[in-house]
Design a protein around this nucleic acid. Structure first.
Lengths: 232, 232
DNA sequence: ACCTGAACACCGTTCAAGT
DNA sequence: ACCTGAACACCGTTCAAGT
């Protein structure tokens, strides 16, 4: 009787924990974006009241710190499984492979770059990630000084993303050529040529992956040249 | 009498306008950062009620679009005053000077990069800025295809900023070396060497301007090499 | 130890109403 | 045409209270 009554009140919800809170938060962000991640919605998904979260997490900022760290751990697990030789001139390929692998993880969590950028405290896992990247550069013969500059130069590209400030070829610029043709001659010229080169695409289509790799290789090639110069 | 009564009610406030709203918004952001920019605070500064703003501006997003565009116009005014030769090999210096001038404007509006990054619609002034940048590359002999890649590779660096995902040398990493020394050997090694090279500074101090220029020159040098290769 | 209800101090925004 | 008061539907968070 008592047992039946308990059952009627619903199955006893698994107790909350910091870990369950963070996993639920990632699920919400993956499904509906960062805007949907509120403390109230988070509690709802967990079958609890919003105020219960504060027993396991200090505030929303700690939730954001936490999910950034979980994603960074996921990245570290993936890149640590990579086995790429990194001695001498091979450093560049090793770093490149690592960064592109990290990028694949981030593509599964499109909200993560925005969270990384708002964090002020360093996630422990992101520190580990950069430490390993530094290690690969050291294998290539980088001084700490050059490696330090390199980390700054790569910036978020080191983690596999590159915030698109504006997409010079997205629809918003492509569909007003007539109006701005005389005021934006080079932009219009560029976009029409891109459309011509790739007639099947919508005007101004850009391949994110191609552009990411172009910028990454530009930086890695430049760094490799500086490495050669400094070691000779 | 009537006049005195009116005077007692306070001087008649200048009427609102879209322009006054945007200027006030920039003032708030300059003084207290983006977090302080709320519709209610904005109205208060203007001596009006929050709801009055909606007669001049559709919503807060339009305020953010607007102040981004005003800053971009300020940048365009500064860089258009530059007179730097850009023909042939001189393109690189012209682009470099332009970008560093844009950066100086952004340093006066530290909140602006964050706003640029959240805008989805392109600001007309930012389109103009990039159109001129494309023009300089064309002067240097770039194909539209290479110039297009170049804009993607530069990303926000074209506008004079580079979001610091993490500062490998800021205080938060510098003051836990003992605890993480074994887990982060390269990071700790790098930071201690930087501290040694610059004993007067706090551990891990980084010169933003120096790092910005390092990354920028790495990209520009790489692009120049591609330009030479393609034109030969 | 873990969870909750009620309440507070904020947001952006709508809508009907004032001049 | 321009501005406002009252109100709505949200936020994150505190605090005293429940088990």
């Amino acid at each position: 009787m008592h047992v039946a009554a308990d059952a009627e009140a619903g199955p006893v919800r698994a107790p909350l924990s910091r870990d369950r809170v963070l996993r639920a938060a990632i699920g919400i962000a993956d499904d509906g974006g960062l805007a949907g991640l509120t403390m109230r919605r988070l509690a709802e998904v967990l079958g609890a009241e919003a105020m219960s979260l504060y027993y396991h997490v200090a505030n929303k900022d700690e939730v954001l710190d936490g999910i950034a760290d979980v994603v960074a751990r996921e990245i570290n697990e993936v890149v640590d499984a990579l086995e790429v030789p990194s001695a001498g001139a091979q450093w560049k390929n090793a770093v490149r492979r690592r960064i592109l692998a990290a990028r694949q993880v981030l593509l599964r969590h499109p909200w993560a770059p925005a969270v990384f950028e708002t964090r002020t405290a360093m996630s422990p896992e992101i520190l580990v990630y950069h430490d390993r990247l530094l290690g690969l550069m050291r294998d290539g013969g980088f001084s700490y000084d050059l490696a330090h500059h390199a980390l700054h130069a790569l910036g978020s590209r080191a983690l596999g993303f590159s915030p698109e400030l504006f997409d010079p070829g997205d629809g918003s610029t492509g569909d007003v050529p007539a109006e701005f043709a005389d005021r934006l001659p080079h932009l219009v010229g560029m976009l029409s040529e891109i459309a011509h080169d790739d007639p099947g695409s919508t005007l101004g289509w850009c391949d994110d992956q191609t552009e990411f790799e172009f910028g990454l290789d530009l930086l890695l090639d430049g760094l490799d040249r500086l490495r050669e110069r400094s070691s000779s």
